[in-house]
Every structure is written in structure tokens, then in C-alpha cells.
Write a protein that binds this DNA or RNA. Structure first.
Lengths: 135, 135
DNA sequence: CGGGATCCGACGGGATACTG
DNA sequence: CAGTATCCCGTCGGATCCCG
């Protein structure tokens, strides 16, 4: 059961969305799409559809619980499609939607940034911790 | 006390960083910078330094605990500087560093994406929930 | 003003076991 | 293969009180 009716939603929609506002739905969305697992899942689907087990392999260390949970949330938000192929055993493919590919561009930049700047951050941490230790 | 020595870190650094790998430090960094509070704090500092109370006001709904915790983490990672001006009462300013401004570009895109696509996502959710309800 | 310290509930998230 | 269900623990995160 949705917490808001479509009419209520449309009324809200007339005001600008601003994630700095506490109750703005765009902040909830920000909470969703930012975050480790969403970022890794979306970027993992960059080169086309993947099966569940393939995703689990690409994203090393993810538990099935978090993988399933994240995929469901992304599917519900219209960012990923879930295609079941009846067979034995069953085959399930996940693929980015149009809007999902749009998000991919943004999230891929975040992931790439982490990988590009991790060394500087590691050095900064070392310096910070050293300064704290002497104090 | 750091969990790795500088020598160990440097040894690791010779291998490429890939956030898809479970133990890669860049995934820890991804975990840090992705996430609601980090994104909001960094983007809030886009137009220059802000005081603690100003940050708390701009980022509506943030508790002091999370604001302080997030600011400390960003400072430790070298993304934000903390400047204390001795006075009564004390004045503390937070400002993005060079690398912090670099991150801002990426995170601002994430925040903007949320605000731009929230309506489509809301519609997708409604459709998804409706489909689930009838099943 | 800019926090630190503490308590506590809620949820994130891993491990394991079971199913169609 | 692709999940679901359950247990369990750690952390997230808010509320409150206190301090320099």
C-alpha cells in the first residue's frame, strides 16, 4: 500500500525538488542510489545484461541477501529490468533500463573517482592519524 | 593504530585498484563517499566555506552526530579542511580541499540526478507496487 | 557556538539452511 | 540456478545531556 496517492504526489511535484530538504522524495532517492551496493550493481551492468550468478561473481564479496535486495530496489525504481527465461535450470537476466543507463554514467564516475584518488586519501589518513597520535 | 603499515600499503598500491574486488581499499573509499550524508555535506560546501551551524541548517534534518561524524571522516580523508578561529564564541569553518572540489563535481551530479529523475522513479514504483498487489 | 558522551532502538548486512 | 527464510550481530542514526 503506497503512502501517498497519485493525486497527492502530483500536488507535491509542482514544487521544486531539492535533496537538501529533509522530506523531499529526492533525498530518499539519493539515499537509494548513493551507497556501495547500488553503485557496484549498476556499474557492473555497464556492458550489457548479466545473470544473477554473474553479478555475484563480478561484485566480489556481496552476499546474496544484499545482491537480491539491491536488485529488487533497482527494479522497483525502474532502473533495472528482470527477465526470467523458463528453462531448467531457470535463467534470470538483469539489464539496465534507459534511465538506468543514464544513472550508470553518474555512478561510474563515482566508482572511477574512488579508484583514482584512493592513494591520496590513504596518505591523508595516515597524516591525520599521525597528527592525532602525537596530540 | 592503523591496521596496515606504510610499507604494506605501498606493496598493495602496485596492483591496480578495482572497487569490484572485495578487499580493495577503493571499495572502502566508495563506501565512504557514496552515501547520503557525505554527498549532501560535500555538495553543501560547493559555494565556499560554511560554519557548522550553517551546514546544519542547509542540510535539513541532519543530526549533529551524523554531521560531526561525516565532517570528521571527510577531514581525515583530506577532502575537507577544518579551520578553528579563536574567539568567543568559537568559530569553525569547513571548506573543500582541492581533491574535495574534485569530488564535488562527481557528487553534485549524483544529487542533481536524483532531483531530475525522481518523478520517473516515483512513477515506476507506483507501477511496480500495483503489479505486485494484483499478483 | 561547536561540539563530545552516552543511551537506545532500528536497520544494514553476513552466515546458514532450505526451496522450486 | 536463483532465489527465500531465519538468526544474529554490528553499526547507523536520533535523542538527550553536558562542556569549553
Amino acid at each position: 500500500m503506497p503512502t501517498r496517492t497519485a493525486a497527492q504526489r502530483r500536488a507535491e511535484a509542482r514544487t521544486a525538488y531539492d535533496a537538501f530538504m529533509a522530506v523531499c522524495p529526492s533525498r530518499q532517492l539519493l539515499d537509494r542510489i548513493s551507497g556501495k551496493w547500488a553503485t557496484l550493481v549498476v556499474t557492473a551492468l555497464a556492458d550489457g545484461p548479466l545473470r544473477y550468478a554473474e553479478l555475484a561473481r563480478v561484485i566480489a564479496g556481496v552476499s546474496q541477501k544484499m545482491l537480491t535486495q539491491t536488485l529488487r530496489a533497482l527494479e522497483r525504481d525502474g532502473l533495472v529490468t528482470r527477465t526470467v527465461t523458463a528453462a531448467v535450470p531457470v535463467r534470470v537476466d538483469y539489464e539496465l533500463t534507459g534511465i538506468g543507463r543514464d544513472l550508470l554514467v553518474v555512478l561510474a564516475a563515482v566508482k572511477a573517482w574512488s579508484e583514482r584518488h584512493i592513494e591520496e586519501v590513504l596518505d591523508a589518513r595516515e597524516a591525520y592519524d599521525a597528527a592525532q597520535a602525537e596530540a
